[in-house]
């Protein structure tokens, strides 16, 4: 009984995000002209999964009480890289996918090394590395173009047994292969501990540096998986500054909606995934209600503003005014 209650308290943010997502998705599908069909779910899943990968990447870093403002740019860079490499015979394609994932891992490792071993503030460091990644992406693709192995792309964006979107299955696999082992490992726990209180964690001999480094590195990897999927959806590579920035912004929105604390040490990537799916669904609500698409950026901005303001309710629980100041 008691275990059950602790588990509920721990997963409250995740469950809330799941709830928001289910309500929004029901509103979305009931008002969609085609209704709740496999095709509607597939389209929604494909759009949502992209953001879900980036949101997972952001979660890993946010858990350590840092922030990665370069996730969107890693996504762009790997998108451009994939549009060169993920082509040709199955063997070449496999090598290409591995190279793209490695590139993401390296980007994440660079961020981690600068923040942890270089001891720079994550905000400034990742804005600067983001500029570098964007520059490299632009070098690879000065103009939108390129191609991708279409068999693989169609397989990963289609439907399994004509019902389940393959992209959702891929997301599940990534969660099982990356997130679950990480969060249960010593390094995952070190990342949580570092986010919750770095001094206390350091004093108790937790390997905080390696834990944080792993978090940044895996964030790069997850962002590169997002970049791969972006290539699979669009068949091209494009280095568009605005779209990279938008992904970074939306990843933060998704993380907040998913119940991950921006002060670190609290939340899970599962919550962030539901946050991402919910954010995408809310953004698409405008289309089913036939609004001018021009209103979409404002609508998404207002949702983001409301989502981040919700955290202010914690102020009502503060008994001592000094706790206003962290």
């Amino acid at each position: 009984m008691k275990d059950w209650r602790y588990l509920m308290a721990e997963q409250r943010g995740t469950l809330l995000a799941l709830g928001i997502f289910i309500v929004m998705f029901i509103i979305y599908t009931t008002n969609h002209p085609a209704g709740f069909t496999a095709n509607v779910v597939q389209t929604a899943a494909n759009k949502g999964v992209l953001l879900a990968f980036v949101a997972m990447a952001q979660t890993l870093v946010v858990i350590t009480a840092g922030i990665d403002l370069s996730v969107g740019m890693i996504l762009l860079l790997t998108n451009c890289l994939a549009s060169w490499l993920v082509v040709g015979t199955p063997f070449e394609t496999t090598l290409g996918v591995i190279a793209v994932l490695l590139a993401g891992l390296v980007c994440g490792a660079i961020n981690g090394a600068i923040v942890i071993y270089g001891r720079l503030q994550p905000i400034v460091a990742t804005i600067a590395t983001g500029a570098v990644y964007y520059g490299i992406g632009l070098l690879l693709r000065p103009f939108p173009g390129g191609s991708v192995n279409e068999d693989l792309a169609d397989a990963l964006t289609g439907k399994l047994f004509d019902v389940i979107p393959t992209s959702l299955v891929a997301l599940l696999v990534v969660v099982l292969v990356v997130w679950v082992p990480f969060s249960r490992s010593v390094f995952g726990r070190a990342a949580y501990a570092a986010g919750s209180s770095e001094t206390a964690a350091y004093m108790s001999g937790v390997p905080i540096r390696r834990g944080k480094f792993f978090a940044y590195m895996l964030a790069g990897l997850l962002a590169s998986i997002g970049g791969l999927f972006l290539t699979f959806f669009t068949y091209t590579g494009e280095a568009a500054y605005a779209s990279g920035n938008a992904y970074t912004l939306f990843s933060i929105a998704a993380v907040v909606l998913g119940g991950v604390s921006l002060f670190g040490g609290k939340g899970s990537a599962i919550g962030a995934i539901f946050g991402a799916l919910a954010f995408r669904t809310i953004g698409d609500l405008l289309f089913v209600f036939d609004f001018d698409p021009l209103w979409q950026p404002l609508f998404q901005g207002v949702i983001l503003l409301i989502a981040v303001s919700l955290g202010a309710f914690a102020l009502f629980r503060v008994r001592n005014r000094l706790e206003w100041f962290l």
Binding site: A253, L294, Q300
Partner: peptide
């Protein structure tokens, strides 16, 4: 509201962008 400045300023940036996009078409 004690919202981290990094987050709230990103959000107002998005809202300002949205307002300007609506205004300019």
């Amino acid at each position: 509201l004690r919202i981290p400045s990094m987050i709230i300023t990103l959000a107002t940036n998005a809202v300002a962008q949205g307002l300007m996009v609506v205004y300019t078409g």
